[in-house]
Design a protein around this nucleic acid. Structure first.
Length: 960
RNA sequence: GCGAGGGUAGCCAAGCCCGGUCAAAGGCGACAGACUCAAGAUCUGUUCCCGCAGGGGUCCCCCGGUUCAAAUCCGGGCCCUCGCACCA
């Protein structure tokens, strides 16, 4: 069969949206379910991987809709930041990759021309996301509520949120050191290099500047990451070929390199270059080390890079391989020594001083590792690794040794921090930020670290807020389970977070200072709230410019007076009241689903902002995290492309096949590679199911059979299990049952001789709706094909049950299928072609003993009690002989039995009767005569004495 | 640096929290049989090793431990992946 999935999708999509079944309306008194997925940033086309989480959400929402809930499933987009701006810039300068990517996605030239405007970029992609992705996939989202973070009404909401945070005392100001281009302001340093043209992997390093007193009162300033090593100082390094400058800082005169002076100007107030000093002139003189007061000589080193740190370096040859090798080389270089007046004795005096005891290392790790790695020259590239290794092990496992004064005996990790504080407090040191590698702005200019003296932060470290959030998180449904635990730690460790920024960004102006734009995380954490309001703004019933603090306070916090709000905003009182009522109805948010990248950023602040601003009854109730769909070779990247456009994939595989793939290919909580063949497999599966439905609905026979009751019961029990899965949002198990196990049931029914039209139709009427959450288009089509009225999407699913009757029917059929397996196994092993099969059910005493064993079970049944009881009522000597062995066997089986087996064994079924009715089926399966006896029937046919094998649930078999 | 997750049969992937139901679900692939003129589709069966009676052996990255019992718990090791540090 060749099914035109695209046509089916189009048909039902249109039908749903025409009938507006996606529009959310509160029904007071009815249960509600409110779910969102973390809206995507508008930075280009999405790829097939992104649809995983979105589709999962839609499936959950559809399921909820079919189980008695009014649902709200709104969508929006996030355009704050520089994504659209940098996209527009790439288009403007006709960036080849960007243009090609647009064309590959079917974008025409006229549109491309428009996309050099960021606002157009946002408008364009908003439309792409809605139409080409979400509607195309049949989402039952309420489109009337769509919002975007740069809409004016959304901005009003963000302003309100910032005001509330201010009132709560959660907005604080303090200095901050940010990467910035002097021309273009702050830039983001990240591997995708959206703002920059070089240096995406750079890190911001925090150096400590140590001040060394020089004889004339100036201070030589060395930058270091390891202040604790001052105890091992032996000398100072300066580059004789580099120009150094005198800089006036806070009344002191510092000597640093010229680039360092420029950087300092950006990070400290009133920094002034007042003179210059050539490195060579300082050679062989002495300076006084901070902290220890030791006098050390100044030696030349060409390795002092004026662009790194301060351009001056302190030398600790015991723990820094570079310093050690520097000394070794200097010793060999007589010419340099002579030139600068450095004697052998001076170098000799600069021998390494052991300062840190590190397990597994000798007293001088730098010397040791240089020898081990065979490093003898400063040009050896292995120096980097050597330095890292010594630093890492020393920092984590080292202890300051006895020559470290009051710090002796303290772990390096602690000593470092304590010494830093002490030197800063005494004015012997200062802090300096620098980038670990060169970073260039898009404009080509160098990026520096710049002090922002008055940066605003949201105080997520606030202890009360943290505590309340953590407590609330414990009451939430957070999946996967690991994250439920881990979010406690994330919340605990969460620190102040910069919430506004300068520069050219899209977003909302900070209400307390218009120079700032609210940062992209800060404006995307409380927003589920806004979907309640957005619909009214979209329809023009309320106007952005009038949405003031009083308005939001009233509808979201229940504060104030409705008539006053109406008067001041000019909005209709009815509208205001219904927004407020809707908010009270839909909130709190039941589930927020987002990718795993949100675990340490979005989710914690999402939670904390709710806790900070809203009333407790409106705090969120659940978080679901999804892992990624990756490309076979690695992560599918938005910017780097390489993945097929979503509409193309939809056309090629069918939307429902993709939806099925997402839902079933793996648990939500693992990454999984996208493979065309797999998706094709799911498409084939769907086609098969369509065929199955077609065949079953065409059955016209009305004869009843033994298995009619079983099929009905089976679906009851499946239904019951499915709801259990969905309580845990375990869509994968749900799909496995609906799409793979249930068709097996139907096949078994037919194989067993089931052919009753009305039983089959009843089964289809139960089964097809179960597919509606995951493959809704195909489900609607099937539903229609069996003569039902649309929409299957709106059918209420039965709850299912595990009643005694259901258990008994399942146990009966299990008896039959197990017998079938046993016989097949024996046939396989013996390679007999049977002429007759004899089946023997257990003697009654075995049933009795089994019942006793099951009843006794709390832990293990008592073997001897079972034996004693059976012996008393034993009728024959043969029986007495069998009892002990059987009892032992039974106890083992009962302890190991699954709940299902246990229920089956306990079910009161007459095995002899059931099996006698199965004789025709067995005869046709094996093509020979089948006889059924009780093992205690004197007339049984059992020449090889197999009757003893009989157990309840597992009759004995004799073949010949 | 700070933090998280993971290594299961030819492949993908459940199971692990709550030890016995586990030779380990399901899918894919492969093989065999049925149907068919044939192929495809579909259905049935097999797919770690041994076995002419429904059984036995070995197994879930490696090593060790706890236990009557470990894929599952604990300790150590090797390897992989990912998140964060004003991209969102």
């Amino acid at each position: 069969m060749n099914i035109d999935f695209t046509a089916i999708e189009e048909k039902w999509r249109k039908a749903w949206y025409d009938a507006k079944i996606n529009e959310s309306v509160p029904i007071q008194g009815k249960k509600k379910f409110f779910m969102i997925f973390a809206y995507p940033g508008v930075t280009g086309y999405l790829h097939v991987g992104h649809m995983r989480g979105y589709t999962f959400s839609d499936a959950v929402v559809r399921y909820k809709m079919m189980t008695g809930h009014q649902v709200l499933f709104p969508v929006g987009t996030h355009a704050t930041g520089n994504g659209a701006i940098s996209f527009a810039k790439r288009v403007e300068r006709r960036d080849v990759a960007t243009i090609e990517m647009l064309r590959a996605n079917g974008c025409d030239e006229e549109t491309i021309a428009k996309l050099s405007d960021p606002a157009e970029v946002v408008r364009f992609f908003n439309q792409v996301y809605i139409n080409d992705y979400w509607k195309r996939f049949g989402f039952l989202s309420d489109w009337r509520r769509f919002t975007c973070t740069i809409y004016p009404d959304y901005s009003k909401f963000i302003e309100w949120q910032m005001r509330k945070l201010m009132v709560e005392g959660l907005l604080i100001q303090r200095p901050y050191f940010a990467a910035a281009c002097l021309e273009h302001g702050p830039v983001a340093i990240d591997p995708s290099e959206t703002d920059i043209s070089k240096g995406g992997n750079a890190e911001v390093l925090e150096y400590l500047l140590l001040k060394f007193d020089f004889e004339d009162g100036r201070k030589l300033v060395a930058a270091t990451l390891r202040p604790e090593t001052v105890f091992g100082l032996t000398n100072f390094w300066l580059n004789p070929d580099v120009e150094y400058v005198d800089v006036r800082v806070d009344g002191e005169i510092w000597v640093v390199s010229r680039p360092a002076a420029e950087k300092l100007k950006l990070q400290k107030d009133k920094v002034e270059v007042i003179g210059s000093a050539h490195g060579a002139s300082l050679m062989a003189r002495r300076c006084k080390a901070p902290f220890t007061g030791k006098m050390i000589p100044i030696f030349p080193s060409t390795l002092c890079d004026p662009n790194v740190g301060s351009g001056l370096v302190m030398s600790v040859p015991s723990d820094a391989p570079v310093d050690w090798i520097g000394l070794v080389e200097l010793k060999k270089d007589k010419a340099a020594g002579d030139r600068y007046g450095i004697t052998d004795q001076m170098i000799e005096d600069a021998h390494p001083i052991p300062i840190i005891d590190t397990p597994g290392w000798g007293p001088l790790p730098a010397v040791e590792i240089s020898e081990r790695m065979g490093i003898t020259s400063l040009s050896d590239p292995k120096l980097d690794d050597a330095t890292k290794e010594v630093y890492k092990t020393g920092f984590h496992t080292g202890v300051m040794n006895k020559s470290c004064g009051e710090y002796a005996g303290r772990p390096v990790e602690q000593a470092k921090e304590a010494m830093r504080e002490e030197m800063l407090a005494s004015g012997q040191a200062d802090v300096f930020h620098d980038l670990s590698e060169e970073v260039l702005c898009r404009c080509g200019a160098k990026v520096f670290i710049k002090k922002i003296p008055d940066q605003w932060f949201i105080d997520y470290a606030n202890p009360a807020l943290t505590e309340r959030s953590r407590e609330h998180a414990l009451t939430m449904k957070i999946l996967p389970r690991e994250y439920y635990d881990n979010i406690q730690n994330v919340l605990e460790w969460y620190r102040e977070r910069a919430c506004v920024r300068l520069g050219n960004w899209l977003g909302t102006r900070f209400p307390f200072d218009q120079r700032w734009i609210v940062e992209a995380i800060a404006d995307s954490t409380l927003y589920p709230v806004y979907y309640v309001v957005s619909m009214y703004a979209n329809t023009g019933q309320i106007k952005a410019e009038k949405m003031d603090e009083e308005f939001f306070d009233y509808v979201l916090l229940g504060k104030g007076d409705g008539s006053s709000v109406a008067k001041n905003t000019g909005f209709s009182r009815d509208v205001i009241e219904s927004i407020r009522k809707e908010f009270e109805y839909w909130y709190p948010l039941d589930i927020n689903l987002g990718g795993k990248e949100h675990m340490t950023v979005h989710f914690p602040v999402f939670l904390m902002n709710h806790v900070a601003v809203l009333r407790p009854q409106h705090w969120p109730r659940g978080i679901l995290v999804n892992w990624y769909i990756t490309a076979t070779g690695g992560k599918i990247s938005k910017s780097k492309g390489g993945a097929q456009p979503i509409p193309d994939a939809a056309e090629r595989f069918g939307v429902d096949a993709m939806r099925l793939f997402y839902a079933h290919v793996a648990s939500l909580y693992v990454d999984v590679a996208w493979e065309d063949e797999k998706v094709e497999g799911y498409r084939d599966r769907l086609e098969k199911l369509c065929v199955t439905v077609d065949e079953l609905k065409s059955v016209t026979t009305t004869e009843s059979s033994e298995v009619d009751a079983w099929l009905t019961a089976r679906l009851e029990s499946r239904l019951f299990g499915l709801h259990k899965y969905m309580e845990e949002f375990d869509l994968r198990s749900y799909v496995n049952d609906v799409y793979f196990e249930t068709p097996q049931d139907l096949r078994w029914y037919v194989r067993r001789g089931g052919k009753n039209k009305s039983v089959l139709m009843a089964a289809l009427e139960k089964w097809i709706p179960l597919m509606a959450p995951v493959t809704p288009h195909v489900a609607e089509e099937m539903w229609e094909s069996i003569g039902k009225k649309p929409f299957v999407s709106q059918i209420q699913l039965a709850s299912g049950s595990l009643s005694d009757k259901v258990v008994m029917e399942e146990a009966k059929e299990r008896l039959v299928s197990r017998l079938l397996e046993d016989i097949s196994e024996i046939l396989k092993v013996t390679r007999i072609k049977p002429s007759r099969i004899v089946v023997m059910t257990s003697p009654s005493w075995k049933y009795e003993m089994t019942a006793d064993a099951l009843a006794a079970t709390k832990g293990r049944p008592d073997i001897s009690a079972l034996i004693k009881k059976a012996m008393v009522s034993a009728k024959t000597p043969q029986e007495k002989k069998e009892i002990p062995a059987y009892a032992k066997d039974l106890v083992m089986n009962v302890t190991k039995a699954s709940p299902e087996d246990r229920r089956g064994l306990a079910a009161p079924i007459d095995e002899l009767e059931v099996l006698k009715k199965t004789v025709p089926f067995l005869q046709s399966e094996f093509g020979c005569e089948v006889l059924v006896f009780s093992a205690s029937d004197p007339g049984r046919i059992d020449p090889k004495g197999k009757a003893g094998f009989a157990r309840p649930g597992r009759p004995a078999v004799y073949l010949e």
